[in-house]
Design a protein around this nucleic acid. Structure first.
Lengths: 144, 144
DNA sequence: GGACAGTACATGCGCATGCATTCAATGCAA
DNA sequence: TTGCATTGAATGCATGCGCATGTACTGTCC
């Protein structure tokens, strides 16, 4: 019959389940809300945010895709396609990197920055409801 | 220009990013390891575990899909297909529920229980490495 | 210079997911 | 009993993902 978990293992499992629940709740809500209201997925928003942060540092600064990659938890291919979506939506610009012509530098367009600024309050609000509000249950957010 | 986050919001964002990182690290590692060695995805394992727990209570007890649903963070359709995969692999059995013929009761097969028992140590080990081992970085697990 | 390993990004492909819909069975009301 | 809203689960479809691969460029070693 089944051997039981050690107390340490049981603790890990409990921790993992809590993490799963929190992640599912917040991610689902973010995707829904940001998607419905701003046509952005959770990861799209995350990428825009990194670009804003990156650009904030150096004015019109641009970010290499390879610099962006480690900060978002996506495969290289998924990131490539995500950027393609953002570009198609007119939120970022792809340009060849001059110092290394294999590289791509990303620039936030005005529309991209605006979209981000508009979406940010909702993003923060959803985080507050799903993370701050105790052990969230389902994918339900008051919607406003 | 961009309004800044309040301290509370900044804290939420930091918390969220940490959660994202932990989740990505652990989920990715679990999927890889369980997949490579036991042909199970993270969610497949999770479902098997719920069945083991459910069945442990009542001997040869079976679980309704509708009871299982709230405990795994999947849409109803995804769960339905996941169960179909498990059934095809011979790990669970689907049967009509007698008391409510719309319902489906799941039974863990002997093979299913064995697969779970074999996979569990690896599952716990990966959790230990990715959750316990501080702020995990990438999708890298010592593989043994 | 030329061959070659390594890096940066894009793309083909299969798979798992979610949404919307569908179908079957149930419960309730008239 | 018939009619109808509700529930449990399966399925069509579109989408996003990761893996493997392809393409272009870089740097090194000869």
């Amino acid at each position: 019959m089944a051997e039981l978990d050690t107390p340490a293992e049981a603790g890990l499992v409990a921790q993992w389940r809590e993490l799963l629940a929190r992640h599912a709740t917040a991610a689902c809500a973010l995707d829904r809300e940001l998607g419905d209201r701003f046509g952005l997925g959770m990861s799209e928003f995350e990428v825009l945010e990194r670009l804003v942060e990156g650009c904030a540092a150096g004015g019109g600064h641009a970010l290499r895709v390879s610099e962006l990659a480690p900060t978002v938890h996506l495969s290289q291919s998924a990131l490539s396609r995500l950027i393609a979506r953002l570009e198609k939506a007119g939120l970022v610009t792809r340009a060849m990197c001059e110092s290394d012509r294999r590289g791509i530098v990303l620039t936030l367009t005005e529309a991209g920055r605006e979209r981000y600024e508009q979406a940010r309050p909702l993003h923060r609000e959803v985080l507050g409801l799903t993370l701050g509000g105790g052990p969230g249950k389902a994918c339900e957010v008051p919607s406003d």
